[in-house]
Computed example of a mutant assay.
Amino acid sequence: MTTAPDPGAVATADRVLAPDLARGGMLLLIALANVHVYVYGLPAGPRSYPRDLSGVDAVVAAGQLMLVDGRAYPLFALLFGYGIWQLAARRAAVGLPPEAVVHLVRRRGWWMLLIGFLHALLLWAGDIVGAYGLTAVLLAGLLVAGSDRALMVTAVIGTAVSGLALTGAALPPPPGTNAALPSMAVESAPVAAAYRLAEWFAIGLVLSVLIVFGAVAIGALAARRRILDEPQRHRTLLVRVAAGGIAIGVLGGLPLALMVAAGRDPGLEWLLLAGALHGLSGYAGAIGYAAVFGLVAIHLAARSARTARPEPAWARALQACGQRSLSCYLAQSVAFVVLLPAWTLGLGEGLPLWTAALVGAGVWLVILLIADASARHGIRGPAEVLLRRLTYGPARP
């Protein structure tokens, strides 16, 4: 019996709009979530934010804790799980057996783990690519061929584990700590690299897998129901999920946001409770954001049908960024590293939180424009090209 050849990576023109829009928007959240961790030289407090915030900095910290922090990476994980099921469904449609697809997902996961290791070694200890790669390796069989029930159980367990894992994240570091990650304050590049690998293994890999594997399962479940592939069919559900998820995310993040913004230490038990609530509600917020982008895709499709005009420029730019999400994610790290750590220009020393947020948003915007220009000139993301070749071989598109 012969099997059909693997169809390779999906062509850019055939990609689904809503997940790419979500990936493009998600990268802004990730930039905002990451950039304040590059700040050093200030007393560090809960969730890696500086202590004793006031004025605009306090407002920015509160806003990020309710809308960004702990919400961006679960969204990334959800979209990753969605993409794995799309990959599996595409191969099932041409007759590839499940074991071949599981092997492919694991192969892709191992290469992502290597990319994550190199990302951490050279640039950023908070790398998440390696964690998603390891999750793919560990859960490939479940994500490709597991039952809906098994995925639901995994999602529930993963959500609970995420809440437990993030409970301690609300605790402040020991007195005298002046950087969320010690590698940021090290002036020697080789020493900083050694610090980053230790930080990545403990936080970016092990802890991150515990935090995101439930969201990956949720993404695979959503993909099986084609919720973002066919958002118009699920409009009512998307409206409810968007409103409810974001509301839960905001309200669940509010206690920790108030504690951090006010600079108050209400006691160990309250900090732990606020950390757990913040982590659990982050899953709801991430799902709500994904639903918002599904609704945006519905609006854009209706607009095109009504006016026969192409998508607006902002939508094309977001889509281009989403299609190159790995390249854009890595490019953010390059930009932040050039500017902020002590072993490069050192501009992160004592940087106000509101300024760091502007840097994060500005870097995202520049990369968004570059991605848009790349799409208009038919240039694919270099990291995507590399990962596709490693996964499918040089003969694949």
Rank of each mutant, 00 (worst) to 15 (best):
G158S: 00
G24F: 09
E199K: 10
L67N: 05
F201E: 01
V292A: 00
I30R: 02
G249T: 03
L353M: 12
G41P: 04
G348R: 14
A302L: 13
P98L: 10
A61T: 04
V102S: 14
Y132R: 01
P397D: 10
V209T: 13
A320C: 10
D6G: 14
G163W: 03
A375I: 07
A257L: 02
R15N: 03
P74D: 14
G350H: 05
P43F: 07
A342V: 12
R15E: 03
A317S: 09
L67C: 06
M184R: 11
L205G: 06
W110T: 12
R306I: 09
I218F: 09
F201P: 04
G141S: 15
Y289T: 03
A342M: 15
A120V: 02
L345Y: 08
T135P: 02
Y329G: 04
E187Y: 06
V137H: 05
G176C: 07
R388F: 02
L197N: 13
L210C: 13
Y49A: 06
T177C: 04
A220E: 05
L17M: 00
P50H: 12
A315E: 00
R316Y: 02
F76I: 04
G45H: 07
V35W: 00
A357S: 14
G163H: 01
L210T: 01
R106Y: 09
A179M: 05
I115H: 05
I287L: 15
L347K: 13
T3K: 14
A242V: 06
A373N: 03
V186Y: 01
G95P: 14
L351V: 09
H299G: 13
L300H: 01
W200D: 05
G263T: 12
A150K: 07
S54E: 08
A257W: 03
G393Q: 02
A335M: 15
